[in-house]
């Protein structure tokens, strides 16, 4: 069942990228289980995206928007077909998410290192207001080259935001320039409650999100760019920002549906 939803999301990512000519497919693939775990854990109502008592999610690595839109669609916020205009002039679904256009999107992101700070503010607001609201944000390892990510972590720890969960997509994207070695150790050194796991194990991520904590929670997910399609995972630089042609789409769909993800 869970494999089915993740496979469906990946399949639609491929279809929409093919149809629109846009999309960062490998980075969108790497976060499918993380996103699905969040949306299967947090309080939300796709039919009432502005439900007052909802939990909040911020995709800080906004360039993975296609994965985000397809996850929202899979959970009923809108149809996959709605997203087929991805990146088109008059589409609601841009290559980076806009909160004023897409139901369920809480913050417009794109420039890296911003979303996590906004999420810290949201979590602090929930504390001040005395609500039980939880805030989740998903950051990338490449994004974590930005100093503002670590500023935000320091502030979150110092303000004791035990209602904030940071999911860290450790997909090794910065191996060619500024890699972050041992991210779990780094987050521990900053004072976070850290869990580390295989980033495509949906149930493990959900268990980590459900476990009570009295600190800022960081879930380091060791992921694979392009996970689910061998062609993508073995050629991540070539496929970093590229849409599949018709024959490529067929091959990728075959790989996706043949694999045991």
């Amino acid at each position: 069942m869970n494999d089915d939803i993740c496979r469906k999301i990946r399949s639609e990512i491929l279809n929409i990228s093919h149809k629109s000519g846009h999309g960062h497919i490998p980075t969108s693939f790497s976060i499918v289980e993380m996103l699905t775990a969040v949306y299967q854990t947090m309080r939300h109502d796709p039919k009432r995206p502005d439900m007052p008592e909802r939990d909040l999610f911020v995709l800080s690595k906004g360039h993975a928007s296609l994965g985000y839109y397809c996850t929202l669609a899979a959970h009923g916020y809108f149809s996959f077909e709605d997203v087929y205009g991805f990146g088109a002039f008059d589409s609601r679904f841009g290559c980076h998410p806009d909160r004023t256009k897409v139901p369920g999107v809480e913050a417009s992101t794109g420039s890296l290192g911003h979303g996590i700070g906004i999420a810290v503010g949201m979590a602090l607001a929930a504390k001040i207001a005395g609500t039980t609201r939880k805030v989740y944000t998903l950051i990338g390892d490449g994004e974590s080259n930005e100093g503002s990510v670590w500023e935000a972590i320091m502030v979150a720890v110092n303000t004791k935001l035990d209602n904030l969960t940071v999911l860290y997509d450790n997909n090794q994207s910065q191996g060619r320039c500024l890699p972050i070695m041992n991210p779990a150790e780094r987050f521990r050194a900053f004072g976070c409650d850290v869990a580390e796991m295989h980033g495509h194990d949906l149930s493990a991520i959900k268990q980590a999100l459900a476990r009570p904590t009295d600190r800022v929670r960081v879930v380091v997910c060791n992921t694979v760019k392009g996970y689910g399609c061998q062609t993508l995972s073995e050629n991540v630089y070539e496929w970093h920002r590229r849409a599949p042609k018709p024959d490529e789409l067929n091959k990728l769909q075959e790989e996706l549906h043949a694999g045991a993800i």
Binding site: I118, A123, E151
Partner: peptide
């Protein structure tokens, strides 16, 4: 909140607080 010498985050947090009313 005397949040620290972290101006980028000061502004982002301000935005997050504003988002919640």
């Amino acid at each position: 909140y005397n949040m620290g010498i972290c101006e980028n985050t000061l502004v982002s947090v301000t935005a997050g607080l504003s988002s919640q009313g």
